[in-house]
Design a protein around this nucleic acid. Sequence first.
RNA 1: GCGCCUGUAGCUCAGUCGGUAGAGCAGCGGACUUUUAAUCCGUUGGUCGUGGGUUCGAGUCCCACCGGGCGCACCA
Length: 502
Amino acid sequence: MSELVAARRARLAALRERGVDPFTATRYDVTAHAADLAAKYADLGEQGRAESETWSLAGRIMAVRGQGGVIFFDLHDRTGRFQLFVRKNDAGEDAFAIAKQIERGDIVGATGFVFRTKAGDLSLYVQSFEVIGKSLQPLPDKWHGLQDKEKRYRRRYVDLTVNPHVRDVMILRSKIISEMRRFIDAQGFFEVETPVLLSIAGGASARPFLTHSNALDIPLKLRIATELYLKRLIVGGMERVYEIGRTFRNEGIDQTHNPEFTMLELYAAFWDVEDMMRFNEELMAHLARTVHGSETFLHGEEVISFATPFRRIGYLEAFKEYGGLEREQLLDPDSALRLLRDYGIPESPTHAHALDKLFERIVEPHLLQPTFVYGYPVVLSPLAKRMKDDPELTQRYELFAAHMELSNAFTELNDPDDQRKRFELQIAERAAGDDEIPPPDWDFVTALEYGMPPTAGIGIGVDRLVMMLTNNASIRDVLLFPLQRPLPENARDEDEEPAPTA
RNA sequence: GCGCCUGUAGCUCAGUCGGUAGAGCAGCGGACUUUUAAUCCGUUGGUCGUGGGUUCGAGUCCCACCGGGCGCACCA
């Protein structure tokens, strides 16, 4: 045990000797928070004392400044910081001796009245206090906080304690998601939950995580999208459904990818992709206003404007504008594969893959302000309805901003025969080496055979949207617990080595 | 998976040419009855990520491995 932990345990023992056990405390009757008191007494005059009203605060002690017969504490609660003032002459010998044992990190509840100190700081003149939790681990530096990224992610509880900015981002995330729900619910959507454990993980192209059911003795996969199940609900007549849920893709980890991430998928019967565009831009503008009070905000060095309407550009038109490429060069598979060589991009196993790579290289760098790119080729869009006047393209768009894909939406394919054909085409692509393409979900085709109304659907990467709105460059900084490789002492699989029981 | 960077006290960081490990904060002891990065005096604390190698001698040089970050590849 480290010396610092030993010192803290000694303080715990000292408290217990004085009849105070921080770990037996259960509840504390909190009547005020730091920010509330700061606002309420903002006008309190120089050295003023509001003795007629008493308040109870609780939180973690983040700084201790002892000065002989008085002690100042910085108490942090979820709203911010408030200073506590304890004076020996008022508290009495016994209570003051207990107060002297309180150290940085301890959890304290305090009751008293608000006054302004000589230095002008609002403080709580403590009339009584309780030590209701004890920190046995030393906290990081009070000035520099915790900088080490690895420790910040592995011990997020410490990061949250000492780096207030992290908590602010996570609170904003929470706010963004609840606003999202409010906005959607107001339009009559039902929030639903579809399975995470599946035999066929479809609805997107990605390698799934594999697991196993003991009860059924079958292999299972974690979902890579919620799409096919939400559309089954549209078939079932629910008309407007959405799910905000965790999705799992067994692929690379980098600044915009975590193996588990949160996606909003939403489906509306009787809408088409145009309706969805309007819904999408209104939602984005609403969230920007909620977070920033404005539709314009800073992302990195760039000013982004979520003011509606967003720019719209055709998929083929974008290639023409930014790369001078013609329709035939892209839609002909052999020609698209040749283009890869022209741009020095590694070979692709499929036409679809090649188009994605080309788009990423030629068009994406130009998409700073929010832009709907619509009319994706059907080879890229196995679940989208074709355009009426141009069956090689689909009624599908993706929304980009700050060079990131923020959403993907289309008028849903509801022709079961066409869907079957596209699945069959995917079988061929899978065989050709694109192992991210899932095997077909034939029951989904059966569902379409029962009849699905014309429907539009959308998927929004919630983490990326939060990154955008909170000006974070890394997905890890908007996730509370981003995936980290376990440390060696935790890496052992419990199933392999059952711990001996006493 | 590949490349670059990185790992030194609880935290934030120094550590020169290879010569036997340092600061600030935290901690500990003391002073101080309005401080707020409190101050002042004194002081403890280190398998230098792990394992090898080179060397009279390695935090420092070399190799391998383990974390982490960034870039590339893959993907949303």
